[in-house]
Every structure is written in C-alpha cells, then in structure tokens.
Design a protein around this nucleic acid. Structure first.
Length: 278
DNA sequence: CATAGCTCCTGACCGC
DNA sequence: TGCGGTCAGGAGCTAT
C-alpha cells in the first residue's frame, strides 16, 4: 500500500505529537518481517526524538532521559504492503495489531494484516541493521540532486524496462506501483522502454513527472486503495486522480484510447499505448 | 555489478 | 453460502 506519499503523510500525522514523549512499554504481536532486534524492556524510559523519513522507511530516534544524553539508537519502521500506523489512545488490540510503542503522549501502533512490514531497532542510522536496509536506496525525489541530469546518467547503466527501475528504488526512492505508472503516463513514456534508451530530454520530463506526481499525492493525503489511512485515520484522495492505475479497459482521460494492463516482473503495469511512446 | 525469480502473509474478489 | 483460484500498494535474498 504505502509509497512515499503515504509514508510521509503518516510521518507528519504523528511526528510532532510523539516527539519528546517517554517510552512506557512495548507490546509485540505476531512476528513481522524481521525481529525487533532488542529486548522490548530495553526501550522503556527512553525519549522519542524527531521522526524522519528515508524512502519508505521511518526512523524514530530514541535517546536517554534527560534529552541531553546521547542517542540510544532508534526504530526503523517499514509499512510493507499493508501496514498502517496510528497514534493516540490505544484501543482494544485487534487481530492485526502487531506492534505498540506505548509512550507518555500516546501509543504508536502498527496494524499490518500481511506482516510484510517491520520495526527494527538499530544503534544508529549508520550501523547495522539500519545501515544495511538503507544502503542501496537511491536519491530522494525532493532533493535538489534529483534532476534530469542525474536521472539520465543513472538510467544509462540499466537495461531493464524503465518501470522496473523506478520500482527498484535504487535510482530514486518513493515511487511504488501506483506512482511509477502515473509518473510514466505524465512523462509520456512507455513503461516497457529500456532505461538506457531514454534520452536526456525525456529523463528531464520524467524527473519532473516523478516529483510532480509524488507532490500532488502528498498534498491530497496519499492514495487510499484498500484501506490506507494516516495516524489520524484519514483516508487519501489521490486515487481519484489516477490517469492509468487501476483503469484497465477504460478510456484514457487524455486521448480516449483504451488503458492497457500488462505484467512486468509479476506486477501489474497500467498505461496508454497512444499517449506513452517507446 | 545487473538482473530474474522467489518469498514472506492475509484478505478481497470472482466465477462456479 | 462455500470453495478454489487469482491478485494485491514492497523489497530483501539468492542464484546466475
């Protein structure tokens, strides 16, 4: 579910409220993708710092009380395919609530039916396991370093279809299946086109499209396909603006041709063969 | 190094 | 209503 906009919307919905809170306890449900990596009780008494996002990961820094003391690592959280975080008064523990961080300001809860998500303790962002999980991530789409020149240069080294390179996240992070499809539509590029065949001008358009689509989704609170919501329980609205994603067989909103669905690396790709060229 | 395929898990949906 | 098959927003791991 969650791509960069959904993760960022989630972060914004609880970061300021949890910052400075003290950890009172940790509750673990069924196993997530990886074990927590520390004794849950070892976190009790630590204070929560400023939550930051890297790609689709959230880093929750922890430090000893009082806050002047050195950092005591943090929690690296990923929402996987079906994860959602809520923050507030902890209600009844549901079937899919697999992690609670109980703090003096409220409980941060991960609800994740498929359990592809993870909460992993790490001593810092530059030490394992956090460093390992973040090491191959590409640039942030909103960084100044992400531009047409960078994208073109990075794509020159790949022969995979452009859609798969965007999904890979090692050139630029943040676009999952929905936004990769939408960005390629916006840029007028066929998702099957080999990355190294993309010209400099088209790379320029694509970088602009990726940033634009993610920005637009962010401003709309993300996409709600099945049940995404932020930590306040708010749904997103971007999916109503989708030009191609999930619209197989429907008329393209630009040329009225039929939107097609193909499968690339076992994942659906939606595109308009008339508007998107090789 | 780049790439292809597999994998984790549960729920929703579709056709019979 | 029940059953089986298919598909789903992610991404690390392994083998080549």
């Amino acid at each position: 579910m969650p791509e960069l906009p959904e993760v960022e919307v989630t972060r914004q919905s609880f970061a300021s409220r949890v910052e400075g809170a003290q950890i009172l306890g940790v509750r673990l449900g069924k196993p997530l993708r990886w074990p927590l990596g520390c004794e849950p009780t070892a976190l009790v008494g630590l204070a929560v710092g400023a939550v930051v996002r890297r790609g689709k990961y959230l880093w929750v820094p922890l430090r000893a009380h009082p806050p002047m003391e050195a950092p005591r690592g943090g929690l690296l959280i990923h929402l996987g395919m079906s994860g959602a975080l809520t923050f507030g008064t902890a209600g009844v523990v549901g079937l899919h609530d697999h992690f609670d961080l109980q703090t003096s300001a409220g409980t941060l809860r991960l609800t994740d039916p498929r359990r592809f998500g993870s909460v992993v303790w790490s001593p810092s962002l530059i030490e394992d396991p956090a460093a390992k999980l973040l090491s191959r991530l590409g640039v942030e789409p909103f960084d100044a370093s992400f531009d047409g020149a960078y994208l073109h240069q990075a794509l020159q080294r790949r022969r995979q279809a452009i859609k798969l390179v965007l999904l890979g996240g090692d050139v630029v992070v943040g676009a999952g299946n929905i936004y990769a499809c939408e960005a390629l539509f916006a840029a007028g590029i066929d998702p099957r086109l080999r990355s190294d065949k993309i010209s400099r001008p088209r790379a320029e358009r694509l970088s602009t499209a990726i940033r634009g689509i993610l920005e637009r989704a962010l401003s709309l609170g993300g996409s709600t396909l099945r049940d995404f919501h932020d930590a306040h329980g708010m749904a997103g609205a971007f999916q109503q603006e989708a030009r191609v994603y999930g619209r197989e067989g429907q008329a393209c909103r630009v040329c009225a041709g039929l939107v097609r669905r193909i499968v690339q690396a076992q994942r659906s790709t939606f595109f308009c063969a008339h508007c998107q060229k090789r």
